[in-house]
Design a protein around this nucleic acid. Structure first.
Lengths: 208, 208
DNA sequence: TGTGTAAGTAAGTGACTACTTGCATTTGGG
DNA sequence: CCCAAATGCAAGTAGTCACTTACTTACACA
């Protein structure tokens, strides 16, 4: 039904602004341009409605993919990071609210961890592939490295609005800078895909 | 007054569990072992009470300090990171709630950004000092590097409970691992304090 | 002993909340 | 055109919320 989706979208929007307790059925009905009763007839209860809205949201999320075989790590990681950070920024309000509700209503919002889990998995696989290609100069744990990049991206998406001076400028370049820093931590050369000359003398990696 | 502080502590605790809307004056009064009316006589309103509780909390936070002149970067950064991550972990509930309320009640919780702002400042100063000592092999922006380490630590403190498999094990070593990764990204040798030889040819910076 | 201050008890106010009931209206397909 | 499902409207229920009023109790201090 079209009505159903309108109500679900309105519920998600109101929830993102006001959280669970602040998402009154009145507010959701107004936002959807629908009578309050329709909500109860369609979904039974406020909790069922919001639960369904959350699941709908997490299922409709499609992440950027990383190639199975790394070719140009800096480019690939940057693009992945940019897509991920954009995804988080667009949903920062609802993510904050969901994280806040997690302790009180764990069953309702545990699906929210699917996206970061998948992202971490993908990123770990990619970094491991990099290592297996022999392109990393240093030993490292993929999970730690992935947590570092994802943590930087996540914090940027969550915190930049509140305290922009803490994060690198401009915001559109942030993902690129995080990715570059991570690659340097792993000792990955950023020039050629595989024919990298071995007498690398750590040329300054300028870009932008 | 002793009573005042008891009420403030109870308010902070209830707020950490239930957020602003869930922190009913009844619950706070019960948690403090105090009659509900005492709250209104002491603080005037629920909002004033919780605002005061938040300010009390942020003022009583004392962060670990970084030395002005780096000596043993790996040790110093690790200790700083461990103290910071412990601080965040102990307060993860209240931080989540505060971040969630930020959009609806910005004036009430903007003081919460003081701690991370100070931490970022300290860390940037330390990293800049490292660079000025000539111990970093690569060019880098201190803000980006600081955001990376703080982001990893922040995400770890906020997200590990929800999805432990995404973060490095064991949790007590996480700060150390993040710090080491960051130092490698900056090309900092982790051995000697100053007598580092200049012809660094990116020997693998093994440690541990 | 008197007095002021902080605290408690009891009761209640008006506003809001999720949710229900009964009935009228619209809408879309056979 | 008819029927049935979906939706709207009006009203109401029981409960909770922040906050108030009026009065009483406990205690420190002079």
């Amino acid at each position: 039904m079209n009505r159903r989706d309108e109500i679900l979208a309105a519920a998600a929007e109101v929830f993102a602004q006001h959280g669970f307790r602040g998402s009154t059925t009145r507010r959701i009905a107004d936002a959807a341009g629908v009578n309050e009763i329709t909500i109860f007839r369609q979904f039974g209860s406020k909790e069922a409605l919001i639960r369904e809205a959350m699941q709908y949201l997490t299922q409709s999320a499609n992440l950027a993919t990383l190639p199975d075989a790394p070719v140009d790590p800096e480019r690939e990681l940057t693009e992945w990071g940019e897509s991920f950070i954009q995804h988080l920024r667009l949903r920062s309000s609802i993510i904050r609210k969901t994280m806040s509700e997690l302790e009180e209503r764990p069953d309702m919002s545990e699906c929210a961890s699917d996206v970061p889990k998948r992202a971490s998995n993908d990123l770990c696989r990619y970094l491991t592939a990099l290592e297996r290609q022999g392109r990393t100069a240093d030993e490292f744990e993929p999970i730690t490295a992935a947590a570092m990049l994802m943590g930087a991206i996540f914090s940027d998406a969550m915190g930049r609005e509140m305290m922009p001076e803490v994060f690198p400028q401009p915001p559109e370049k942030a993902a690129h800078m995080y990715a570059r820093l991570l690659l340097r931590a792993l000792g990955v050369e950023n020039r050629s895909p595989r024919a990298t000359n071995k007498q690398t003398k750590r040329s300054k990696q300028l870009s932008s």
